[in-house]
Design a protein around this nucleic acid. Sequence first.
DNA 1: CTGAAAGCGCTTACAG
DNA 2: CTGAAAGCGCTTACAG
Lengths: 352, 352
Amino acid sequence: MKKKIGIKRIAELSGVSIGTVDRVLNNRKGVSEETAKHIRAVIKHTGYKKNNVASRLKLATNKAISIAVLFPKEAYLEEHYWHLPLKGINKAVTELSEMGISHDLHVFEIGNSRSFTKESQKILSKKPDAIITVPFFSSPNLELSKKAQELKIPIVFIDTKKGEEIESHYSIHQNSFQSGKVAARILSQIIRDQGEYIVLNLINDINSQKNNRERESGFRSFFETEMPTLQGAIHSVTVDQSNIKSLTQQLKPFSTKKVPLGIFVTNSRAYLLPEILDKIELKNTRTIIGYDLNPGNIKLLEENKIQFIINQQPEYQGYSAIKGIFKLITEEVDTDLNHKIPIEIVVKENLK
Amino acid sequence: MKKKIGIKRIAELSGVSIGTVDRVLNNRKGVSEETAKHIRAVIKHTGYKKNNVASRLKLATNKAISIAVLFPKEAYLEEHYWHLPLKGINKAVTELSEMGISHDLHVFEIGNSRSFTKESQKILSKKPDAIITVPFFSSPNLELSKKAQELKIPIVFIDTKKGEEIESHYSIHQNSFQSGKVAARILSQIIRDQGEYIVLNLINDINSQKNNRERESGFRSFFETEMPTLQGAIHSVTVDQSNIKSLTQQLKPFSTKKVPLGIFVTNSRAYLLPEILDKIELKNTRTIIGYDLNPGNIKLLEENKIQFIINQQPEYQGYSAIKGIFKLITEEVDTDLNHKIPIEIVVKENLK
DNA sequence: CTGAAAGCGCTTACAG
DNA sequence: CTGAAAGCGCTTACAG
């Protein structure tokens, strides 16, 4: 292995001081275009690559990379879904702490878009090096994106796809449509043409509905292409999740049919279902597949009352966001920031 | 955030030079027990933690961590399974290259234990900082483990569990028994008590049989506890994988039964099956679950001829081994090196 | 516009 | 057994 060339060697080869080389490398002003061009040529020719460890050693003390995180306030609660991406963020920050990185958490209320806007402004006024948030509110969100862009602050949205098409932001989430296809694949193996399928949309707020719909489209798309004859057997039920009565009523008819039932719950509330099914004495053989490893779903998975969960790996999403931002800032490479999270299938036996 | 205390501050507080602090921190000799004790007390009291970035900056140039990898020679072949852990290793080494780490690959022939021994010796004579290999041959393996231990070289086995119980080695693999249970969970959802189950052990060499057996035990254990009445419906077929004739003969009887068939292939050769089943005109509804995303299995997954694959994430195994070794050497923490790989369930729709 | 020097926190000879 | 100085590769004032 030949000796690694550093900034010193570049300076020698270019006939300038290392200070000047540094200026060119970091696009600082105060170098004549002529020398700059020459130095760039040398850098290119030698294939020089900055040593980030050395670079961060100096910067870690003076200029740690600061990342603002804007999450629902539930992130504070141990057992809550929003705590998980935060956990991943903490893990990545810890791993990179010696390289100089820090974050601070700002929270908003899920039902209150103004709390989001207010915290957004606080964050922007601090001019962090990057922002991680979730795309809950469409217009306050757009606002934040725009301002971040003006200030040249990279912004990463995790968990779900942003509704609006804005450029120059990053996004880490699972492909909802594709995850619906995975659910369909699994249920179709089990139910085949022997029973009925229910797509259950348990809605609560406006924001998540888009996600639900995409999951349902994916689910239906699977049957269209892979088992077109079964389309008549797929029923959609959309109910407010607090309206147990209506849900009960809509499910009742299936219990008289006595056919196997495959139920796809398009959000994280699958754990609401078994109790209701028992109450209406629906005795059909049933397979339930839902999303997210929240305590309710985990419990029912362990009790064999839910059979499959699709996991979005929220912890990994937070982790990836930090790692990706660090790479973006230190190496100017953003490949890790537009990143589809694998669709993980969980049964009782591979729950960790 | 209060100012981070470094070696300099420890030196001040202890009334010694930083050189002496360094000696204590790195357990180098040449410090009187008295001062050492005092310095250790100060270190403990202040909660000082070494800055690895600074440490590696110095060491990266002089003393890169050297890791010897001993793999089957198939690791060179792009499409082969053994290439995957190597890919993960390369990825991790690249990520850590600035911190000073390098590896070199040694290969052996799968059918030839002497080639393994020969390369082991070469590796040991170079005194690498760590070794990564696979536990294929029991006695040459034991030999290597022992010698590495004598030389205080950490050794990490990936892919399968070591047969022998040796202490002071590390192991990164999937829990075979548990993965069998996952396979059983999936097939049992599909076949229920309506059909028959076949556990197919396609054996080739002696080494892998242990793994197969554990997978089968896990599979059977699931039925014992979760669906005890079905145990009569589980059949084991063990055939040399090159003996297609015998395999054909043993499967033939199932085609006359006309019941749904759930087939669990305990190794990576599930791709051999569909063609044979077609040949003997086995028309039963069938579900096949096997291991590993090799090109054959991927192709048949895409063609709907295999339904489920359990992935051992070989790339991630290699990646984890390097990251874990780095952490062990730089931070003296080995938590990442005895590490169970998640049991990943793959269908056509979540193939990446 | 450019250079020389000090410094990031740790490690390594070298001197005593 | 202990200390003072140089150095890892890059960055930052400061001086010119």
